[in-house]
Structures are given as C-alpha cells and as structure tokens.
Design a protein around this nucleic acid. Structure first.
Length: 415
DNA sequence: TCTGGGGTCCTAGGACCC
DNA sequence: TCTGGGGTCCTAGGACCC
C-alpha cells in the first residue's frame, strides 16, 4: 500500500441555489432556477432538487425550463455571493489539509495523504469534514474519497445529495465498471455517441478492451480513456500534486445581446467595453497578452473566431481594442450579430523587448489606466469609459495627453 | 429545446526553419 | 526532377467542464 494517496473530492450540492436560499429562506424546498428570468436569453446555471423533478437541469435554456416547470421561481445569479461562500468553503478545507485545490467555484480536491494520525481513517475524516462544512457555511456538500482525483470525483457524484462515499484501494475498477461511460469526466455527448457506436456503453466495457484498440480508434484521447476506466488519473487529468498553482492561459469576456443587432456603433461600443474588461484584468493579474482573438456569433448561431498575434505583448485597453476592432471590421458581414467576444491568449509576465519610444508610450498609458481602474473601483464601472463608447470631449483629451487622466494630484477627495 | 459566460485541452493544416 | 522529415508557431474550430 506504500505510495498510495488519499484524495477527497468535495462537491457542493446545488451550490448557487443553496446560497440563494441562505439569502431568502422562503425559497427552501421550492422549485428554484438560478440563471435569469423565464423569458430571457440564457441557460440554467443551477436548479433546485424540486425543480429537477420536472426535468429542469443546468445548461438548459431558460425558456425551456419555464415550459417544463412554469411555477418555478426564477432567480438572477449573484456571482459575488458565490465567490464569498466558495471562499468560506476553502477556509474549512484548508484546516484539514494545506494541499487544497479549488477546481471550480463549487468543487475542490484535498490531499490528506499521511494525515491518518491527525484526522483518523479516511471515512472518519471525510465525515468530520462534511460536518465542518455544514457547520461553518450552512451548506450541504458531497464527498468522494479514493486514491485518485478521477475516482473521488465520480464517487462524490454518486454520493449526491449530501453524502460521503469511500472507494477503498483496490476497489476502483469494480466501482466504475457498471457506470455509464458518460460518467467519466471528459466524456460528453459527442464522445458518448462515438463510444456507443462501437458497442461501448459502460466503463466496464472500456476496461475490458485492449487499450491499443482505443488508441487506434480515438488517438491520444482514447489511450487516456483506457487509463481512466481503471481508475487512474490519465491524460490532462494527470496534473501534479493537489494544490499546485497553474498559470492562467487566457482571459476573455463575451456578451450575448438581448436582441441580435446590426448597428455598427452599438457593436463597436460593446467591443470597447469587452476590450476594456479584458485589459483591466490583464493589468490586475500583471500579465501581457500576445494574441488577441475576436469571437462573432450570428443569428443562426454560426460562430467565427479571428485571431492575431501582436508584435509586442500588451495589457492596454487601446491595444486590445485596436486589434479586436480591426479583426471585427475585417470579419463582420454586416448581418445581425448575436454575440461578441474578446479573448486574450499567449499570456506572459513581461512585455519583452521594446524600443525607447514605445516603452515611454506604454508606461504613460499604463499609469493612466491604473488610475482609471482605481476610479472605477470607487465610483463604479460606468463612471469612466475609454475608446468607442467614450464621450467625445473626454476622448480628445485622452488621445492628446494620457497623463491628464484623473490620477496623481487630480484624485477627488475620499468619500 | 432555441441554445450564457468563463475557462482548458486537443487537432489539424500551413508557414517557416533546419 | 517530382517531392524528406521534424520541430515550432500561428490560426480556426470543436469538445468538454462548471
């Protein structure tokens, strides 16, 4: 048994709904749909168990959810609330092990290998954690315990709602065998169909196959799938120790219009807003983007992306906007647009080589924009805007002299 | 059914280089 | 003449996850 790990996967039950219930207890026990109003463009972010009885589930269009369950209560999402409670969950987990990894806002892994003397046997420790989460956050979760991330994640899913499931070392394959292949993380609708087409329905069917067969049919992905069917962390799932920091690979923002629009001014104003949001997050995380990508979706849902790699990586609104606007003007057919997106990739921590003039220009802009960021923090997102969406007199001033933006010496008194 | 928003990873072709 | 082989970067698209 030496070398075996003990990994917990903690998954919050109906997380967004449960947080909303804390703020409005009258929602408890009722069919609740979080994500938007019944007649809005959008999808279900989370559905209460009462709503799930009517076939409502996450990712379902809101209008469909309304048809399935007209008496459901539709609630707008509150991301800041979910982040706050996600932080509370993290604090509880962190008391049990320093090796914590929030895999998303509502799920986490912790590695408790070697903590048996401190926490007791795996199942005892898991139950203690389950109680601690409930006591400190007033939220239910489910916990899977095993020797791998993969099996623990599948186990927490099987334990729902509000349960704990331990798959003892050596029992992994037997636990997985009767489950549908769709339960394996990484197997979605398309992969499920492709696997079914060659007669594979259960994880046990996968495990019984020669892995060379899977590699021949499905390539690298198939080989990783063979490993997963035996309970191993394989492929992209095999990422180092629990809690290892990984650098962000991209930053993006996108917006779906309430109604499709072919109004060039409105589209470019949105492009300016999205570019500003992306650039701001680049500055906040101290990153520079090498590649800017535009995303364009038309009424028929056909989606196009156009990317360009810059000579000099940037974190400035003006550069992100200039590039995304150039890509937009080249790509847009003039037809009504459903969605616009701006994406920054090829992220790095320095801006690299630059000549003196460019360096000075960049530095002036960076300082000005940091001042704008601070202003927005104080007075709200709409207090200042740059680029297309900006009031024209303000735009002139900025273009002539970025240093004249509110900043040092011009800062209004503290409120 | 009429399909959000923020991500990650993978594939595949062409350019370009040695 | 009639076509190499690998490596890396760029771009576009798609599956998948929460």
């Amino acid at each position: 048994m030496a070398g075996l790990k003990t990994i917990f996967h903690i998954d919050m039950d109906a997380f967004f709904v449960s947080v909303e219930e804390l703020f409005d207890p009258s929602l408890k026990g009722k069919p609740v749909v979080v994500g938007g109003q019944a007649n809005e463009r959008g999808v279900v972010s989370a559905a209460s168990y009462a709503a799930r009885k009517y076939g409502v589930h996450s990712a379902m269009p809101l209008r469909t959810a309304y048809k399935q369950c007209p008496h459901a209560i539709f609630v707008d999402g509150h991301p800041h609330r979910y982040r706050e409670y996600s932080g509370k969950v993290f604090e509880v987990l962190n008391r049990f092990s320093p090796r914590v990894e929030m895999a998303s806002i509502d799920e986490a892994y912790i590695d408790v290998t070697g903590a048996e003397r401190l926490l007791g046997p795996p199942l005892v420790a898991a139950h203690a954690l389950h109680r601690a989460v409930k006591r400190d956050t007033d939220l239910n979760c489910s916990i899977g315990v095993s020797t791998s991330r993969l099996v623990s994640k599948i186990a927490s899913d099987q334990a729902k709602p509000n349960g704990v499931l331990w798959i003892m070392p050596g029992m992994e394959a037997r636990f997985l065998a009767p489950l549908d292949v769709r339960k394996v993380p990484g197997v979605g609708k398309v992969a499920e169909k492709n696997l079914n087409a060659v007669g594979i329905r259960k994880v046990g069917d996968l495990a019984a196959l020669d892995e060379r067969f899977l590699e021949q049919h499905f390539g690298k992905w198939g080989l990783a799938l063979a490993g997963k069917s035996h309970g191993l962390d394989a492929g992209a799932w095999f990422h180092g120790e629990v809690g290892d920091e990984t650098d962000a690979k991209s930053i993006s923002h996108e917006h779906t219009f309430n109604e499709d629009t072919a109004d060039a001014d409105a589209l470019e104003a949105m492009l300016a807003r999205l570019s500003g949001m992306v650039a701001r997050r680049l500055r906040e995380s101290g990153l520079f983007a090498r590649t800017i990508q535009l995303k364009l979706r038309y009424s028929d849902f056909k989606t196009y992306t156009r990317a360009h790699t810059l000579d000099h990586p940037t974190q400035l609104d003006i550069d992100v906007l200039n590039e995304s606007r150039r890509l937009f003007r080249r790509a847009w057919t003039g037809a009504p647009v459903r969605l616009l997106g701006v994406h920054a990739g090829g992220l790095q921590e320095t801006e690299g080589q630059m000549n003196l003039l460019e360096g000075e220009r960049t530095e002036r802009w960076r300082k000005a924009l940091e001042a704008v960021d601070r202003m927005r923090d104080k007075f709200g997102e709409s207090s200042l805007s740059l680029g297309t969406g900006m009031k024209s007199r303000f735009r002139e001033r900025v273009h002539e002299n970025p240093a004249s933006l509110p900043g040092k010496g011009h800062r209004p008194a503290k409120s």
